[in-house]
Computed example of a mutant assay.
Amino acid sequence: MIRVWVIGLVLVSAQLALAADPSASLRPVQRGGNAVQQPLTLEATGAISQPQQSAPQDAAKQRGGIFSSLRPLFRSNKAAKEGRAQKRLQAKGAVCGDLAIQGEQVGRVTGKLRGCGIENAVRVRSVSGVGLSQRAVMDCKTAGALKVWLEQSAKPALSKQGGGLSSLRVAAHYACRTRNNQKGAKLSEHGKGRAIDISGFRLADGSEVSVLKGWNARRYSKAMRRMHKGACGPFGTVLGPKANRFHLDHFHFDTARYRSGSYCK
């Protein structure tokens, strides 16, 4: 009887020793590549102790696998979709990501004067179905402003004249020069690809009206003033026949912005 009691005491002591020392546990221990990630634990300081990565995840990170980051995969898919959409638009002749703006990509444009140039220039041939007498080089912000002006002001103003607006006579677009070509003057917005000068309008029936003759003509004066006023907003600067002697025969539009708002004269 005493012998059985002694054996039982020895077994209990052994179990207590194993409980005190986890490393001596009889359970198999995960090793090497089969190691699994342990759950997050909260240390005495209250900080979350990050678990060690398992060997498969470490290897995947080194290879740049899925465990390295899930986000780049989703970003890549989105970028790929946007790229395909952009190519489809370009295949249809669109620039600036807008089917209404037809032309071609030009890229970076430089000039001789300091401050001249355009980072991402486009050469526009038509906007909202209205052709340009010459392909005009500008940035996309200016092309977008031209679209807004045509759709909201120019086309409505001439909708009842000669079958409507067909094309614009472009007097100037990108040119690395000073304002009004005056020596010592500030750099023109034309030199930054932010401006376009329009000297006349061609109608669907083939007739044309110029800013010079149409501004005070009974038949076109109302439409001319409506177009001039309507440009104030989409563009930051709007100059016409009343501005000065340099603009008697054309409208000057540019996308420069001022704290006080658009400058229109």
Rank of each mutant, 00 (worst) to 15 (best):
P156S: 04
Q161T: 15
L203F: 15
K222M: 12
V122C: 01
V36E: 14
A172Y: 03
Q62E: 11
C140F: 01
R123M: 07
V148G: 03
L89I: 06
E82G: 08
V6T: 15
A217E: 11
K229C: 02
Q102W: 00
C96I: 02
G240Q: 11
P56Y: 08
P28S: 04
K61L: 15
L26Y: 13
S207M: 07
E151W: 03
G107W: 00
V122H: 01
V106W: 01
D205C: 03
R123G: 05
R179V: 08
L99M: 14
A20D: 07
I2E: 15
G162D: 11
G115H: 02
V209Q: 06
P51M: 01
K265T: 14
N180P: 10
H228R: 11
N34M: 14
S167H: 05
A47L: 05
R226T: 10
D21M: 10
S199L: 06
L212Y: 12
P234W: 02
G162I: 06
G97T: 04
N34K: 13
G117Y: 00
S159F: 07
G163T: 11
P234S: 00
P51E: 07
A91H: 10
R63Y: 03
Q50C: 11
S25F: 03
L168K: 02
A85P: 11
R135G: 04
G191E: 02
D197W: 00
Q86A: 15
C232S: 03
C232F: 06
G191F: 01
A157P: 11
G233F: 01
A17G: 03
Q57L: 14
A154E: 12
M227N: 06
K222Y: 09
Q182I: 15
V170T: 08
K222H: 11
L16S: 06
L212M: 15
Q161N: 10
D139I: 00
G184N: 13
F74K: 11
K186Y: 12
A100L: 10
M138S: 06
W215P: 09
A19D: 13
A121T: 00
G144D: 02
R84N: 12
C232T: 05
Q38S: 08
